[in-house]
Design a protein around this nucleic acid. Structure first.
Lengths: 125, 125
DNA sequence: CATCATACCTTGCTTATCTAGGTATCGTGC
DNA sequence: GCACGATACCTAGATAAGCAAGGTATGATG
């Protein structure tokens, strides 16, 4: 009754994770551009500002890697009414890098957009 | 003598591969939208039309996966003056899927672009 | 018939996310 | 003062995908 070789929803979901993979590092660095933020707050902003829902298990290793690369810096801050938070901020090399990445991203996105153009024409709606 | 914690060129290069990962599947399906193409030709077009240089070791497993998912179909064609080529073309589910992916891609790209906006302002050049 | 170019394919390595947990600190109610 | 829940950070193992390097096969050329 169902001969379709794939289950679209699932496979598409996996693909969306793949796509996010690429841009995630840039997204995190970019969101740190204006503000100093802590882990969970980064997750909340990625969700509210860019529509990316990332699990915690992804963000912490990513931030650690970035710190190891010298792109970000961290420091513990005692919250008045709360629990200590580890705030991250961009380093100077980090600022340089996020702009390189942004440029590279746009080049890539523009190239891909060129390939997508032909799809528009026959679009039924 | 070299105190920099990272080697920018290398790390950025690795990141670019990560970014490509996400969009590559969409790029390949999109390039098959108008035409039926064979492996090496896909590589050449990805390079000339979108600026993506992909090695052979990446494209063949990718095409196999897509065929297994039923997104593309393949058939051997004898070239007049040459060597047999395996031509790939989009299936109907493939056409459906590439449009879903394109929509999803644009949503993601738009979200990321929103995060990149603040970087523009302070751009020294 | 040996050589070269074209074209397709496979193996092993590396990297990075995700799932599903676990640990630590602080405030509150009894 | 002590148990409990909320907030926040972190880790281990499984999984997925590109890449580099090398292998196979076909046909044209001298």
């Amino acid at each position: 009754m169902n001969d379709q070789p794939t289950e679209p929803a699932d496979e598409l979901g996996k693909w969306e994770i793949q796509v996010r993979k690429g841009g995630l590092g840039l997204a995190v660095l970019a969101i740190l551009w204006p503000d100093r933020l802590y882990g969970l707050e980064i997750l909340r902003r990625l969700d509210s500002q860019a529509g990316m829902s990332i699990p915690e298990g992804t963000i912490y290793p990513l931030l650690s890697r970035m710190k190891a690369e010298g792109l970000v810096d961290s420091e513990w801050v005692e919250a008045e009414a709360g629990h200590p938070r580890k705030y991250y901020r961009l380093t100077d090399p980090g600022r340089l890098r996020v702009r390189e990445m942004a440029r590279s991203w746009r080049t890539f996105a523009a190239g891909l957009e060129r390939l997508l153009a032909p799809l528009e024409i026959g679009e039924t709606k």
